[in-house]
Design a binder for these strands. Sequence first.
DNA 1: TATTCAATTCATAATATGTTTAAAAAGAAG
DNA 2: CTTCTTTTTAAACATATTATGAATTGAATA
Lengths: 232, 232
Amino acid sequence: MNQKKILVIEDEKTISDIVKFNLTKEGYIVDTAFDGEEGLQKTYSMNPDLILLDIMLPKLDGFQVCKKIRESLNTPVIMLTAKEEEVDKVLGLELGADDYITKPFGMRELIARVKANMRRIDLSNQHESTNGKILDFGILTIDLNRYEVKKHDTVIELTLREFELLKYLAEQESQVFSREQLLEEVWGYEYYGDIRTVDVTVRRLREKIEDNSSEPQYIMTKRGIGYYFRRP
Amino acid sequence: MNQKKILVIEDEKTISDIVKFNLTKEGYIVDTAFDGEEGLQKTYSMNPDLILLDIMLPKLDGFQVCKKIRESLNTPVIMLTAKEEEVDKVLGLELGADDYITKPFGMRELIARVKANMRRIDLSNQHESTNGKILDFGILTIDLNRYEVKKHDTVIELTLREFELLKYLAEQESQVFSREQLLEEVWGYEYYGDIRTVDVTVRRLREKIEDNSSEPQYIMTKRGIGYYFRRP
DNA sequence: TATTCAATTCATAATATGTTTAAAAAGAAG
DNA sequence: CTTCTTTTTAAACATATTATGAATTGAATA
């Protein structure tokens, strides 16, 4: 699993440290910034998956930072408000924040909120990719809702990787992709594995969906380049 | 899927802007009105699918606007209440508002409520009598009125969570849902717990409704993705 | 306030899946 | 036809995900 990155923008080092310690323990990669400017800077350089943002900050306060961020990104922002009164401001000025926690907060609560917001990202990412369609290639159909492939109306059991590879290729029929591209698109961007992994997955996919995996009808090899899907 | 239209009636431009920004980002078409009269006017001209309505408004306040709307339309209305006290009024007066959010609210919550209300319309449009239904899967039946599950005509005692999870999955047979989706849909958008909670609930559900919970017939696992219900 | 039951969290076992490796086969090029 | 390169294949190995049992928390009830 690729680790999620969190940026903590908070001037009190004591708080910052504790938060960092606890979130790191949970498996997140955590970086910290101690004023608004540094916060913005690091936001752009590290491109975090989530931002914890204090309101009272030197140089640029939390409201301004949040607003700036929102101009270009929609990374989830959780505001840390010191007083109940500030909650009103969070409402008035900074609704662009996704969530907020009032200080003092327990680590348990913080972690729960962070996780919940991370989940939400995952969710919205899912929706983009799975737009409930059925790809129909005659004998072969790929049901993106059921994560199911059928051949002659018989369900073929594919593993997730196999399914996603097939889906990716089939969605862009007869386009040839290099192994590098496939690793990037199907396996995920920061994947650093052996390139032959693709071959093996292709082979297993062929065994399952082709009549004769030595003479593929669907998943074709373009020697020296890569693989592509074609309608038989 | 055609885009849904939302009308935001709110006099504070800051709030209005941020709400619009976020809902647009979610794929809705958003228009705004800054006082009660304009709100009514736009309601009739654009015929939105949902209305977000502030209570404190110039010219006509939110209560009056809502009442007016209800005279001719039953477009879902979500009220935005600044204070807890107003909640009583929203509920007490028979305004016909469908939902309300107390300020300050996070964007996450707002979006979730909007989606939930949109979903409700979709559902009630699909099958008018969404109530009074019994899902029948042969040996297994799910009585949505009585909150009762029967197997071979014997009542199976399920807890509320278990029932709602089963209901959700069974209503959308063979559609695969991620744990994130299930937490959001079954547990609710304000849930801050662990994702593995889903697994455990599934397990207990299986123990109750399956013959052999290690070889489930109804509630199936799609490894790497989530769970789905199938007719055995 | 004690008691009960549902719900959640946590730790670990079981299992499915994915990756690597290396050898065999196939294809291209001289 | 021989050599070199690329792809296929099989099997061992490593990793990730899910299932499970037990402990803990929390809410409702008496």
